[in-house]
């Protein structure tokens, strides 16, 4: 394989999600002060790409659509071992839904030119739609497989893939090129070596705007997205929050009475 593209999304670190607040006027989320990390499943996608490259040669490219401030997060992917990164960044991309995002990533793939495989995480932790991989494949007119838990090369242009389904799995044989979305069972992402961090400093991050990509603006950004936000609220829970105290025996008695009152026993 000569070239593998890994789609990577910088996401807000979930350790800090309790700091998310809402701007009621604009109906948007305020995420100031929340650090950015590589979407965890994308690290598994990158690991898969790196191990294929290490065994068979070729190059691994990171592809990301995000604002320019995520560059340090892309550097982390380069430190893990990717060869170079392409950051698709333009104010006209802001507010893109999954289909619009897929249009932008597809344009990025076409800009790259030839490639053999696109790897994505099955979903991101912030939006969690799990839609972009399949949509990107459709727009590139390539086959795609989601929920991938095992992957190996059979011949030069053939992959053996195991896809998880309810209570089991499906084994598939696929021809390259294609788009694959992976689950965490696939592998264990490698630790970043110190030499990798040093090497990443000199690796190339190519920033592209829509001037280079020429995507019809009717297809991207807030305006071009078929889905629209009709409302947004932070989730609030209303529960009784009655604290039961006392000796273990006393607590158990209260619990048994409650469970009885609920009609369970």
């Amino acid at each position: 394989m000569n070239r593998i593209i890994v789609c990577m999304k910088p996401v807000p670190d979930p350790q800090h999600w309790n700091k998310v607040s809402m701007d009621h006027e604009t109906q948007t989320l305020k995420r100031e002060g929340i650090p950015t990390i590589i979407n965890p499943l994308d690290k598994h996608a990158l690991e898969a790409a790196l191990s294929i490259r290490d065994a068979h040669g070729g190059e691994v490219l990171l592809l990301s659509m995000a604002p320019p401030f995520v560059t340090p997060t892309l550097r982390e992917g380069l430190a893990m071992g990717a060869d170079r990164a392409i950051l698709l960044s333009d104010p006209v991309f802001a507010g893109s839904d999954t289909l619009a995002t897929a249009h932008i990533l597809a344009a990025g793939c076409r800009w790259i030119g030839e490639f053999d495989l696109v790897l994505c995480g099955n979903m991101t932790i912030d939006g969690s739609t799990a839609q972009v991989g399949s949509q990107l494949a459709e727009l590139l007119d390539l086959p795609s497989v989601m929920h991938v838990i095992d992957l190996h090369r059979k011949e030069d242009h053939l992959l053996r893939i195991t896809q998880k389904i309810e209570h089991g799995y499906v084994r598939l044989e696929a021809e390259l090129p294609l788009v694959i979305s992976v689950r965490k069972e696939l592998n264990k992402p490698r630790y970043t070596p110190f030499t990798g961090i040093l090497a990443a400093e000199s690796k190339e991050i190519n920033m592209l705007s829509n001037e280079e990509l020429h995507i019809d603006t009717g297809l991207i950004g807030l305006e071009g997205s078929p889905t629209k936000m009709a409302g947004l609220e932070l989730r609030r829970f209303k529960r009784e929050k009655e604290r039961v105290e006392g000796s273990p025996e006393e607590i158990v008695q209260v619990l048994v009475d409650k469970i009885h009152r609920y009609g369970i026993i």
Binding site: P14, W17, N18, V20, L29, I125, D126, S128, T227, K228, M229, A230, G231, L232, E233, L234, R235
Partner: peptide, 9 residues
Amino acid sequence: WGGGVIATI
């Protein structure tokens, strides 16, 4: 966001 936000689309 892990369920912390409910959006209507």
